[in-house]
Amino acid sequence: MNHSTSTTTSRRLTELFFLAARWLLGGLFLYMGLSKAWQPLEFLKLVRQYDLAQSALPLNLIAACLPWFEAFCGALLLAGVAVRGTALALTAMLVPFTALVLRRALLLYAAGTLHFCAIKFDCGCGAGEVFVCHKLAENAGLLLLCCLLICRRHSSPTSDRKTLYFR
């Protein structure tokens, strides 16, 4: 009986943790997406600094779509719709973006005399100028949350065994 109660409590705590992770991630992406979508031209100028594309169309597409896509994913996470798929899509977006931030930071580091963590720039993340180490740590945290949501085990007792390997 006691074992059963502790299992239920543990399961509830896990559920609560995943709910908080989902809401945190969803709220963050919704906020960051909308803040960029509000002023897409400012975002376009920042995206241009990454030298992702030489012609106008791909650059405009990234700047026009990315903010709304982030907001869309944020809304899906908040609503609890297609959570694992959304988390995977966000991971696929976050990994190259983090690599781009790191590349730009390394270029600035190589060109200047600043300590790596003292490098600060507006990465186009929706929060203005940030220290690169903070940004990389934040992205690592977001990636971790995404991975947790992707690999989460279903709470339904009937599906527990089946989804065991996705923990």
Partner: peptide, 9 residues
Amino acid sequence: LIIEALAVT
């Protein structure tokens, strides 16, 4: 999972 991610994208 992959199909779901593609659908979301």
